[in-house]
Every structure is written in structure tokens, then in C-alpha cells.
Design a protein around this nucleic acid. Structure first.
Length: 520
RNA sequence: GGCAGCGUAGCUCAGUUGGUAAGAGCGCCGGAUUCAUAACCCGGAGGUCGGCGGUUCAAGUCCGCCCGCUGCUACCA
């Protein structure tokens, strides 16, 4: 049997020293949408997400709470996993960097890099704040009137020299630049690529990749006084989950190199500079694409505890429903750019696009089949130019959607689908099947079938964004599970007539503001 | 300071290589309709396309300068 093409997509692993916020959920649903799209489009998909559980901040947060790091993780990681459930993620695995498999993988990649001669022991020096337990770059520090050098938190810093292992990042500068030039799609969007190219062109310094001042991390092989510094540990998760260091394992052979790492724009450098260098050093292939998405802003302002506008993702799901929230963020925000949201914008989107346009179109057309044709899906008669036109538009959706998803333009894929929904409403209003009921019932049947066929294709294409709602819509027209893949789109397949469908029920309810408790 | 990008209708934004592109969605106003989730459909609203100056038969669309905003980066010892 012919094997499916493979597709490996990941989110960044979240740092669970706090609870998940909407930014975590956003990255996850965008990645999930692409993963689901590819599955429906016939790919063998692997979708990975997880948590990054080591590092000094985890240790500090735990200490402040009077907990051990493991206790903190026991408290917080389930929240991230619950977020995955709440947002209906379809991840195939959930990697935790405290897992044994990850320790093995991280130590293995370290040893490969060392064997290559890219790791050496030297002295790491820098400005260290005892109070912050953190190192700062020179430019992050300031000198006050008393000639005391201060870190960004306003705490005094001192010059500290610490033994550390270094990675020979500087040796990879030209190879990275060559790779960027030869693979313009490696870093996306383009603005992010320009920044990285500019940064690398400016010269690369070797990277300190171990610490001795705390022990919440993976021990360096052969030198347990050192633990690996954050990025070697964290980035390796993408291959840990494929069974590394067993590069002959089925998962690894099928899915490495990854097709897309979806990450926030703030960690582009680690993924587009450090990660490929590590991989080359270890003799592995580099991912095909690193996509840096933007940030979300609440009413145009960055979410922050001090401003008091931090939005709980679970609360959004409770208020609007998971599919509406998924649709809103994926349709409203140009993927790759920053986005803004508010109660008003979410309600507007879900009412206009989902309830009024798609939900109402399904309701008005399918209810006519139920009421006038005893629920029997009609067979179309001769197709008019109008019928042909709207069907051609519906058949064209999958091509546009594929093209958009190839470049992670999720919003464009959705815009293409909803443009057809809008046109279908115009078609339906112009054809006025309710008027044809008495004048030309046969023609009415053709209009209703045509509309139902458009709904079928729209619903199939809406599954990646709104799995549950789209599925419910397909249930309304009795599309079998096996016929919901993208191979059923594009005109090579049509909604069969003759089946008896149930009376439709609303798939996308309008959001109505709750009544004020005490009007008056 | 350097590099990059942006500044188009109230809001969010599209606008190939310069010539029916001044557009879409939302909001707003008017109309129509009642199959439908008070939804859908039709029409309108007139924005110096940040400013100035150029190139051109013709410029949001190219060039220069200026203003404002954003990102990356450097420096400010």
C-alpha cells in the first residue's frame, strides 16, 4: 500500500512555572489547526507539544511557593495538559523535559556535539546578581550615582567567573548564512528571517551551555557538577519525542527533520540559530521551517498582571465555546503578526461569521429540505449557470486553502472558505427557493441540493479549525466519517441525493449578552 | 546610531512587475424580504492612499527628503 507523506509539526514547549495563558493556547490551536488540516489532506501527521520543566526560574518559583520543583510541576503541568483538552488539541505526544527519555536524548546529543569537537570547557564570565540569581549582559546593567552596577531589576551585580562548557557556535556562522540563503523558507515570516540574518551576519559568539550554580537540570555527561543550560535541554525535546538517540527508530525515520516548528517570535533566535547548529554538530538534519507567530494583545494592550487584563484561556472557552474561540483567533489574527482581541471583537466574529453566515445558511437551507421534502436530500436537476458558478467556487476552496497552509497563512485559508460562505448566501437569496416552492418545485430542489453540497464542502474544510462544530454540521447531512477527508473535496465527489436527513439543529448559536442581574 | 518594516475609508486591513484598484470585512445609514439563528439580500456612505518634492504620457504602486510608529541590533565607558 502506498505510504502517506509524513508531516511533523511542533509547538514550543511551555514553561510551567505559572498557569497557562492565552498566548500558550493560541500557539497550540494554530499548530493544531495545521496538524488537523494535514491529516485530513492525507498526510501521516505527528503533532508534538509539551512542557519545558528545568531551569533556574522553575527552581526560584518553587522556592518562593515553598515547594520543590517537582511539587511545582505536579501542580502546574496538569493545567497545561488540561488546556490541551479544553482547546481540543490533537497532539500525538506530550513531552516533558523531566522525563527519562529526554534525559537520555539530551545527553546523547551533547555527546555527539562533544565528539565533533564543538564543546569545550572554559570560564563563563559576566555580571551576576546574587539577589536575582541571574546573569546579565553588560548592556542590561547600569551604573548608579554611587558607582554601583545594577541589573535590570535594580539589584547590584558583581563580576563572576564560572567554569562552563561552551558550544562552538562561532564555527557555524557561515554555514547558517549559507543555509538561510539557500532556503528562504527556513525562517518565516520574512520579517523574522531578516532579523535573524542580520543578527548572524553581525558575528556569533560561542555559547555557554552549562551551569554549576544550581542543579535543576540534566547533568552533563561525565561531569555531573554541571547541568545543561536551558537551550540544549529545551530544543532537544523535538527529537526526544521521536525516540532519539535511536535514529533508526520508526518515528525518527518517518518524521525527522520536522516540517514546521511553530514558536513565538521572541524565541526565533534559539530555533533559527542555535538549534540548526546543534543539529549539524550532532550530525542530524535541520528542520525545514521555523515559523515565529506574533503576540496577542488584550484590547491593544499587552497582557500583564499589573494592568489586570490577563485573560484565562479556560474562561474564554467557558464563555464562548471552544470552537468559537479557535475560529476567532485563527481567523481574526494574521498568523505571524501580532493580534488584538476583546469581548466585542470575539462576539462580533462569532455572530457574524459563524451564526449569521454559516450557521444560518445551513439552518435555512436544510430546514427547507426537512419541511418541504420530508428530509430527503434531493437529486439535482439540470444545473443553471448560477448553480455551476457557486459549485465552482466551492470546488476551488481546497486549492486556495492548501496554498495558504503551505505558508502557514491560516487566516487566508479561512478567508477563502468564508468568502464562499458569503457567496453562497448571495446565491441562496438570489435563487429564492422559498419562492420556487410553488412556482417550480423541481428547480427548488436543485437549489437546495446545490446549497447543501456547498455546505458539505465548507464543513469538511472547517474541521481543522472547529472540529466539533464542523463535525456536527456534517452529521446534519449524514456525511459518513470515512467521507470527511479532503479527498472528497473539489468536485470529484458530490453529496448524494436520496438520503433522509434529520431536521437541522443550530450548530453555531448567536452569542447573546447575559441579562443584567438587576436591571433598573 | 545602524539595519528592516510600517503609516490606505470610523475600526481591522487587501492592494502582482506603475496605467478602469482607490478596495474588502466590520461598524453606520437607507431599502428589500420573511426560507432562516431579528439572521440573509440590495444600495449608500466619499478616505489629499503620513507630509513635501521629483521621475513619467500616467504613481498608494518608482526615487529623494521629512514626520510618526514598530521590530532587530549596536552603543551610550
Amino acid at each position: 500500500m502506498p505510504s502517506k507523506p509524513s508531516f511533523y509539526i511542533t509547538t514550543a514547549i511551555a514553561y510551567p512555572n505559572g498557569v497557562p495563558h492565552m498566548g500558550h493556547a493560541y500557539e497550540a490551536i494554530a499548530t493544531d489547526c495545521i496538524a488537523r488540516f494535514k491529516r485530513l489532506d492525507g498526510y501521516d501527521v505527528r503533532f508534538l507539544t509539551g512542557t519545558d520543566e528545568h531551569g533556574i526560574k522553575m527552581l526560584q518559583t518553587a522556592q518562593k511557593a515553598g515547594l520543590t520543583p517537582r511539587q511545582l510541576l505536579e501542580r502546574n503541568v496538569p493545567r497545561f495538559q488540561a488546556m490541551g483538552e479544553a482547546f481540543n488539541l490533537s497532539n500525538d505526544d506530550f513531552i516533558r523535559t523531566t522525563e527519562e527519555r529526554h534525559k537520555k536524548a539530551s545527553q546523547a546529543i551533547w555527546e555527539r556535539m562533544a565528539a565533533r569537537g564543538d564543546i569545550y570547557k572554559s570560564t563563563y564570565s559576566g555580571w551576576y546578581s546574587v539577589r536575582d540569581e541571574a546573569y546579565y549582559a553588560e548592556e542590561e546593567t547600569t551604573v548608579n550615582e554611587q558607582h554601583v552596577r545594577l541589573g535590570p531589576q535594580g539589584t547590584p551585580v558583581e563580576w563572576v567567573e564560572e567554569e562552563s562548557y561552551f558550544f562552538r557556535l562561532s564555527a557555524y556562522q557561515q554555514k547558517l548564512l549559507d543555509h538561510y540563503a539557500a532556503n528562504p523558507g527556513f525562517i518565516m515570516p520574512e520579517a523574522r528571517r531578516n532579523e535573524v540574518v542580520s543578527f548572524v551576519s553581525g558575528g556569533l559568539q560561542d555559547l555557554s551551555i552549562s551551569r554549576t550554580t544550581f542543579d535543576w537540570g540534566i547533568p552533563v555527561p561525565g561531569d555531573p557538577a554541571h547541568i545543561m543550560y536551558v537551550w540544549v535541554d529545551a530544543l532537544t525535546n523535538y527529537i526526544t519525542a521521536l525516540g532519539y538517540p535511536d535514529t533508526e527508530a520508526d518515528l525518527f525515520k518517518r518524521f525527522w527533520p520536522a516540517d514546521v516548528h511553530v514558536i513565538g517570535k521572541d524565541i526565533i533566535r534559539f530555533h533559527a540559530v542555535y538549534w540548526p547548529a546543534f543539529l549539524w554538530s550532532a550530525g542530524l538534519e535541520v528542520p525545514k521551517r521555523v515559523f515565529g507567530h506574533g503576540f496577542l494583545f488584550n484590547r491593544g494592550e499587552k497582557m500583564s498582571k499589573s494592568v489586570g487584563n490577563v485573560v484565562d484561556p479556560f474562561g474564554l472557552v467557558d464563555t464562548y465555546g471552544v470552537d468559537a474561540v479557535r475560529y476567532f483567533f485563527l481567523r481574526e489574527v494574521s498568523f505571524g503578526q501580532d493580534g488584538s482581541y476583546s469581548h466585542e471583537s470575539i462576539v462580533n466574529r462569532m455572530n457574524a461569521d459563524l451564526a449569521n453566515d454559516l450557521g444560518n445558511l445551513a439552518q435555512r437551507s436544510l430546514s427547507m429540505i426537512a419541511k418541504n421534502l420530508d428530509g430527503v436530500v434531493p437529486e439535482p436537476g439540470p444545473l443553471s449557470a448560477e448553480d455551476e458558478a457557486i459549485l465552482a467556487l466551492a470546488d476551488g476552496m481546497i486549492g486556495k486553502a492548501r496554498e495558504a497552509i503551505e505558508s502557514q497563512a491560516i487566516h487566508q485559508y479561512l478567508a477563502a472558505v468564508w468568502a464562499v460562505v458569503a457567496e453562497a448566501n448571495r446565491y441562496f437569496a438570489a435563487a429564492a427557493p422559498w419562492a420556487l416552492r410553488k412556482t417550480d418545485p423541481k428547480r427548488m430542489e436543485t437549489v437546495l441540493w446545490t446549497t447543501a453540497e456547498v455546505i458539505r464542502q465548507v464543513a469538511i474544510l472547517a474541521q481543522p479549525v472547529m472540529p466539533a462544530s464542523a463535525g456536527k454540521m456534517l452529521d446534519l447531512i449524514l456525511v459518513p466519517e470515512a467521507e470527511r477527508g479532503f479527498d472528497r473535496l473539489g468536485g470529484g465527489f458530490r453529496l448524494p441525493g436520496g438520503t433522509v436527513i434529520p431536521a437541522p439543529t443550530g450548530v453555531f448559536p448567536r452569542y447573546v449578552e447575559p441579562e443584567a442581574p438587576a436591571a433598573g
